[in-house]
Design a protein around this nucleic acid. Structure first.
Lengths: 334, 334
DNA sequence: TTGAAAGCGCTAACAT
DNA sequence: ATGTTAGCGCTTTCAA
């Protein structure tokens, strides 16, 4: 058991005071090149590294951002939406680019819930993201949502700022794409309840597009189910069985679109020839579906940067909270 | 700017010594119920939280595991293999279950590379995982790979312990499944070079199965490409154009299998009727492919636990390093 | 330009 | 059962 190497050891070897070691290693300009070199050499020789706990205790900083991923209760982390994994990765990347480390936790069950990162000096800021459907988790974190050192994506609450895709623009883009493909009877598939602001916004964009073209007010179809995929499947089933004609679906998210496509194809409805489908999210799964899914994708990299900036308190009132989206052409729409 | 609340403030309000506050809040049994209650109340009233930096400096612990995800150079974190995201999530979950936090970093470019987590007292252990294809990154981390406080998944090096799927058993399972489906002319698709020990092991399992049935030594097909998906596509193309007959493919990973399926179907070869395909990994994308991909999937949850246990130095020589796999029946094999 | 000394907020050894 | 005291290893005044 060799005792740990401290700045005192380095100081002794270099023949200077311990505080000089600290200064030299932190790039203090008042240190002579000669002594700095001597100190660096001694440090290297001894394998010395600054103890981040001690340094941070003294400076009061943590240089880390806590990233909380909210998952569905009862599901394993393996089943987390790839969309949220992608968001997580981009938040970590954006944090790293700004010199912050990322303390990541996945929270689903009541026992996982924890939000004291800032108070216990484990992080300077918190980014919350994940499924809107875990009421318990969001309720637990609700008290933090207004704070200037907290940013979030996916909160079901409306009384605070959320970073999110530009859902309305995306809905418009998707619907205009379908109209351009010759479809005229476009149905929105998804739930429009209060907790799903994102879907409501996408629906509004859909309505904007219909209105522009004088195609009426549109209609929304939803068959609740345990998963978004099942939601899409059941909705398509209901539409096929129903009386009203339709020739295209704009789905609230990719998982729903994938379910809808599967059901349409299974029922002998050809996509995109008879019915066009556009999704929303940009999931990798859509690349390999049959047919590959045309969809709306947010700028993930920018999303990560915006979340980090907002968590670091840089999001003043005028800062944008909407992440730009783009149309990803694959082949589920003519 | 109100000054921060310390244990001294709590002690004063509760009328006890500061050290008593520390003991009470850490569950020291020698503290009377009465004083503990008084202290807890005072702490709550003042909104006091233990400063983890100070506590850890004193105890010498960090209670955190550093998780490094190695990505392909030049790719964004959005393009990271979902398999690695799943592994990441399960490592974090396993760490949390053992009282450890997870400090996550994504490393792809040279500028991202960093491995001093333990030396700088930011973590007690390191878990490395990610693509084997980033030579620079693995080379950078190579010096750590033998250590008892480091565990890894995906290293291209053979001279240290790696936690991995039970690839050989998986190869056997996949091939036996194809044989059971009536296929007799099964080709392995994937690269067998030295950096891809996992693929070689899968190939060996494939050979085990063929041998058991007296189906010869088998053959491997590979067309190098930038992505695994393209690798599968080009390999299928080459096979179709080639002289030798084949009626099934066991692909080294799901992405390759997905590419192969796409190319087969595009060429008018029906899957699974004319050619059966089995992959390896359990990617979510395989659920929505056409046809859905039958594949081999490791026990992700156990993988996370094993990686954490190994990083915490619990992996003695006798501990298993192979994560059990199971066959996921979908419909790319008869 | 460098040294001396204080102290970040806590836990733990030592008293009582 | 609780108080006293000494550090954990660093950064940062304050001196010189």
């Amino acid at each position: 058991m060799t005792t740990r190497v401290t700045s005192f050891d380095v100081a002794e070897l270099a023949g200077v005071n311990q505080s000089t070691v600290s200064r030299a290693l932190n790039g203090d300009p008042s240190i002579t090149d000669g002594t700095r070199t001597r100190i660096e050499e001694a440090a290297r020789k001894l394998g010395y590294r600054v103890d981040s706990r001690a340094a941070r205790l003294r400076t009061g900083l943590t240089a880390t951002i806590a990233v909380v991923v909210i998952a569905r209760a009862g599901l394993s982390v393996t089943e987390i939406n790839p969309f949220h994994y992608s968001l997580l990765g981009n938040v970590c990347a954006a944090a790293a680019a700004r010199g912050y480390q990322s303390l990541v936790s996945f929270q689903a069950e009541r026992a996982d819930l924890y939000s004291d990162f800032i108070e216990s000096r484990q992080a300077d800021a918190v980014v919350l993201l994940g499924t809107s459907t875990n009421d318990t988790a969001w309720e637990f974190h609700r008290h933090m949502l207004g704070r200037s050192d907290v940013a979030c994506w996916g909160s079901p609450f409306a009384d605070h700022r959320r970073i999110a895709s530009d859902n309305r623009a995306g809905g418009l883009l998707a619907t205009e794409r379908l109209i351009k493909g010759g479809y005229r009877n476009i149905v929105f598939v998804g739930d429009l309840d209060d907790r799903q602001a994102q879907f409501r916004e996408r629906f509004e964009g859909y309505q904007d597009a219909l209105e522009k073209q004088g195609l009426g007010a549109g209609r929304a179809m939803n068959s609740p189910a345990d998963t978004r995929f099942e939601q899409g499947r059941k909705s398509a089933q209901a539409l096929i069985a129903g009386d009203e004609a339709f020739d295209a679906l704009f789905c609230c998210c990719d998982a729903t679109a994938l379910g809808a496509i599967e059901e349409l194809v299974r029922s002998g409805v050809s996509v995109p020839q008879q019915v066009g489908v556009v999704g929303f999210d940009g999931l990798g799964s859509g690349v390999h579906s049959n047919p590959p899914l045309t969809t709306i994708e947010p700028d993930f990299s920018l999303a990560g940067k915006m979340l980090v900036a907002a968590a670091l308190g840089e999001a003043d009132a005028g800062a944008p909270h909407r992440v730009p989206v783009r149309l990803v052409e694959r082949s589920s729409a003519l």
